Simulated scan of single mutants.
Amino acid sequence: MATSRNGGGAGARVLGYLESKKNLAGCAGGVAGLVLTVTGVAGTFWPLVVAGLYGAGALIAPPERAALPPVPDATEELGALREDFRRLREYLAEVELTPAAGGRLTELMELYGAMLDPGWVADVLAGDPETVHALSRGIRQDVPECVDGYNRTRWWTRLTPGGDPPERHLERQLSALHDEAERMTASLRETEARRQQTHTTYLEGRRES
């Protein structure tokens, strides 16, 4: 099985080189060498001339342009983010939090869920890459790290009491994330407000024309 895969990979590399700019330029140089051979210019050293012109052509050929990475579709990205959000909520349902932290976390999850709600809201979100990135970071990194850090610190606090209560830090972290989520929703609301104002201006201008 390994031999088969390696052979397929080598064949693909050979085929890729045959189709490359370097090989095409080298072939052009080789053809020029053959012309010199036929006309008698190359003389008895024609093999060296052909090989040399092929190598020269391959060397001066421009490098192949690397393929650009595929750009993820906004709809697919939001679909994957919704799935991660669902898993996050399942995980959080098993975590024991203080009433204050739990209430703040519930409010934050409601804002995240509202922005991910399929429909026209998601359409507005998909048109704002910065908000999508911030929302993705909150769901995939910030919230899990906040809760995991709280759980770990609380475990150590039970062994060695003292210091700042871990729930206090968790509440501050969740408050900061909640404020960030409110700024996200405000940005999306402003986008819709600008769209409405633009349409109003268009209709009023059409009436006056």
Rank of each mutant, 00 (worst) to 15 (best):
M1G: 15
A2Y: 09
T3A: 15
R5T: 08
G7T: 10
G8C: 03
A10V: 12
G11N: 08
R13T: 06
V14A: 14
L18H: 08
E19V: 07
K21W: 14
A32F: 12
G33Q: 06
G33R: 01
T39G: 05
A42T: 05
G43N: 14
T44Y: 05
F45A: 13
F45C: 01
W46T: 00
A58F: 12
A58M: 12
L59S: 11
I60T: 15
P63K: 13
P69N: 03
V71Q: 15
P72L: 03
P72E: 13
D73F: 10
A80L: 13
A80R: 14
L81S: 07
L81D: 10
R89A: 08
E90V: 14
A93D: 13
A93K: 10
A93T: 08
E94D: 05
L97G: 01
T98Y: 00
G102C: 06
M109K: 09
L111N: 11
P118C: 02
G119Q: 06
V121W: 04
L125Y: 07
L125C: 09
A126P: 08
A126C: 11
A126Y: 02
D128S: 05
D128Y: 06
E130W: 07
T131Q: 08
A134R: 15
G138D: 09
R140D: 07
R140H: 06
C146D: 08
D148S: 03
D148H: 04
T157Y: 07
L159Q: 13
L159K: 14
D164N: 02
P165H: 10
P166E: 00
L170E: 00
E171N: 04
L177D: 03
D179I: 02
E180L: 09
E180Y: 06
A181C: 06
S187E: 10
E192T: 13
R194E: 01
H199S: 04
E204I: 07
